[in-house]
């Protein structure tokens, strides 16, 4: 692995000072399960790695009742999976975390890291889009919330500057009696593989009102919400196969899949139809069987 300096700050103040000093030659690391591979492959060649995993204050999951859940940059995917409130409120995210890499790597890989890697196939991004998660972006003197569609602007590209750090993710808690969801993806093997196509479908129900959300991954330069598909679902009281087909058509119109080593453009179009049907059907079944789980 190419040589680099390693800076392990004890707090955010130290991290910001370092970034302001060396901003053009520094990359941030949390879990590092993507970054170390990218360095080994020569995809990035930082002069210095600032390792946020040494900052204890970024290890927390904080539930703010009635408002939202704040997840620190160092929270691993397995800690998300094991957190009872996350499981209850954001089931599609849990399913996506369980699909990511394998049970051992998930001890190291972090949720914020998966978002910040900003790869088109990032498993946790489609459900986070459904849940309208925001990145908490800080500098030494400012703090702002950035919705994920404004953070991720291209494959491996984020909109934030080199002196900013995504310190947390904020997931708002909508008023709901019921939250169900599903994440379905196609990949060549179950563990340790990237998605060929992925669909997240979530449903919040509040006093009889239903709010469906739909997002896809690995099918366009960045994961996206499919608002036309959501409109069809939210305007229909009786969702049958014909409606599911209309939703799948709306998804196909919203994506631009490519042919690459993991699958062809044609395969991706075909499998997307199945993933939409499957995730929608799972969502509806779970809504019937898990009533009151929110």
């Amino acid at each position: 692995m190419k040589a680099f300096d390693l800076f392990r700050p004890k707090d955010l103040f130290q991290a910001f000072s370092r970034l302001e000093l060396n901003q053009h030659e520094t990359v941030l690391k949390s879990g590092g399960t993507d970054l170390l591979i990218w360095i080994k492959k020569g995809l990035v060649s930082p002069k210095e790695v600032v390792d946020l995993s040494s900052i204890d204050s970024l290890n927390e999951i904080e539930v703010k009742e009635g408002e939202g859940i704040l997840i620190g940059t160092n929270v691993s995917l397995n800690r998300i999976i094991d957190h009872p409130e996350m499981k209850r409120r954001f089931p599609a995210l849990i399913e996506a975390c369980e699909t990511h890499s394998d049970a051992v790597l998930r001890n190291k890989a972090t949720l914020v890291g998966n978002v910040c890697s900003a790869v088109p196939s990032g498993d946790t991004i489609p459900p986070l889009l459904c849940y309208e998660a925001e990145a908490v972006v800080q500098t030494s003197c400012s703090k702002r919330h950035l919705p994920l569609p404004r953070l991720i602007i291209g494959p491996r590209k984020k909109s934030i500057s080199k002196t900013e750090i995504v310190t947390h993710l904020w997931i708002p808690l909508p008023k709901a009696d019921l939250s169900v969801g599903a994440y379905r993806r196609a990949s060549r093997r179950r563990a340790l593989d990237l998605a060929q196509a992925a669909v997240a479908c979530t449903l919040f129900q509040h006093r009889g009102e239903r709010d469906f959300r739909l997002a896809v991954g690995a099918l366009s330069p960045i994961p996206v919400r499919v608002s036309e598909g959501e409109r069809i679902l939210n305007e229909t009281s009786n969702i049958d196969e014909k409606i599911a087909d209309r939703v799948a058509d709306a998804v196909l119109k919203a994506i631009q899949p490519i042919t690459d080593v993991r699958g062809s453009r044609e395969f991706r179009f075909a499998v997307t139809v199945e993933l939409v049907r499957e995730s929608l059907s799972l969502c509806l079944t779970r809504a019937k069987t898990e009533e009151g789980c929110y």
Binding site: R8, L36, S54, V104, N107, K108
Partner: peptide, 20 residues
């Protein structure tokens, strides 16, 4: 794979200085 503080971890993706 090794066990670090009770958790299984793949040591090829852990920097040595992280286990301080």
């Amino acid at each position: 794979t090794v066990v670090i503080d009770e958790l299984a971890q793949k040591s090829c993706l852990v920097l040595a200085l992280e286990v301080e």
